[in-house]
Design a binder for these strands. Structure first.
Lengths: 239, 239
DNA sequence: CGCTCATTTGAGGAACTTCAAGGTCAGTGG
DNA sequence: CCACTGACCTTGAAGTTCCTCAAATGAGCG
């Protein structure tokens, strides 16, 4: 686990958690809710949940080579610092996401975009379990292809206009978070801008623009949004 | 296979093939060169190689749902036509690439970027084979994670400057094609531009610019390049 | 040679970035 | 309780990059 300090005391979570913090044992195993022996095998491979403060590094290449990660609560970002000093966010992972098939060549760093709880799952153990149990293999394949589909959508997004990118990001996030009435954006504008390949200024202008034209509204807190006009939002998302 | 016309007579291949056209039987099975019974199982799942002319559609969603694709020769592009009429190329597949885990939600179309030979492999059959043979499962997982890594690199590329994108594309292509002395770019500038999120004009200007500053040189045919100064190329690729 | 299609080049304009400043909010200490 | 602080977000003006439109050049093929 290299030099990561996950023994830091943890104070409080933000409101993005979807699992209660009480049952910290078998979050990932819940995916296989019918087979007790399988759940035991999975629990044996888990480590955590481990808590991280916002901004801290969760894993680097060496860790990612040995573990898959399962997000229990909060938001995780996978990002790359270029030699030129610029940062790109390759992906966000939300509660329930299983990920970790990452090319060490890319040398991405996995970080906590908000305070977060993460499960570490022994990669080798999970793979050998998968070779014996087709359900596990299926879950792994599904997780990977899901991530691939998201990456491809991300590619497509990057060649659209700033306003389209922002609208698409917010709508997708709203869907991924369960289509609640309000969209409480959990990550910072800097993170979102780095994900969308924009500056924070352009992102801010895009959002303000959408607000002015009545597509979205800001409610109370700064980061609480209301997606008002889904029809017109969808039209902006087409470019 | 829907409405695709792959019975069209085929005239001639371009020079990107890596397999001889004589042994048309077991291109994919060659990956498992040690086990004759496994090779037989795999051959039974294959269909093809099927030949396609440059520009023709190879597969749409329905086909992709049922088959994985293995490129025998030529270049395959996976692309998306937006409702606004713009086209994006999500990925290029070269000889030896196995792919097809594509989200039907994205409704990508798989097309021949050059004249090409493609193997169709029954998805369901391959998956059940994978659940019985760990080597097959491994190849599938490797193929998927490779594609994911490429997609993530693609995302990173899209937030860089035009010149950096062009330089990176050419260098990566040169590597993927085996680091031959000359880089014979198999696809059109339009395809490359759509892959990089640029216009053909900007792409052309970027390449001309690199030529003028001695990073690359054009040799004889229009699409034959010589990567001259790898050191300076690498510097441009950093942004 | 003359056709078509692909690539190149140029000039002007739009979109996004950069730089700089102002505003908002939550936490902290007087 | 209130001012102070620092992080985050917003706004404006100027500059750069890339796109758009238009036209010229070049390559491949009958």
């Amino acid at each position: 686990m290299s030099t990561i300090d996950y023994a830091t005391p943890f104070v409080e979570f933000n409101d993005t958690k979807i699992f209660g913090t009480a049952d910290t044992s078998a979050h990932f195993a819940k995916v296989f809710d019918d087979d007790a022996s399988l759940q035991r095998s999975l629990s044996a491979l888990q480590r955590g949940p481990v808590r991280f403060y916002r901004g801290n590094v969760i894993a680097l290449d060496e860790d990612v080579a040995a573990y898959l990660l399962f997000v229990v609560s909060g938001v995780v970002r996978s990002c790359k610092i270029c030699k030129s000093g610029t940062r790109s966010v390759v992906a966000f992972y939300l509660p329930g996401d299983l990920f970790g098939w990452i090319d060490p060549q890319l040398s991405l760093s996995i970080e906590a975009a908000t305070d977060t709880e993460v499960l570490f799952i022994k990669r080798s153990g999970l793979l050998s379990l998968a070779s014996r149990d087709a359900r596990v293999a299926n879950v792994l394949l599904r997780a990977t292809t899901n991530e691939l589909a998201r990456a491809q959508e991300h590619v497509l997004l990057m060649s659209k206009s700033a306003k389209c990118r922002a609208a698409t990001f917010l709508t997708d996030l709203w869907v991924r978070l369960g289509k609640a009435k309000y969209l409480d954006v959990p990550m910072s504008h800097q993170d979102i801008a780095d994900y969308l390949g924009l500056t924070t200024e352009t992102l801010s202008r895009s959002i303000t623009d959408m607000e002015r034209s009545g597509l979205i509204a800001r409610v109370a807190s700064q980061r609480r949004l209301l997606l008002q006009n889904h029809f017109r939002l969808r039209r902006v998302m087409l470019n």
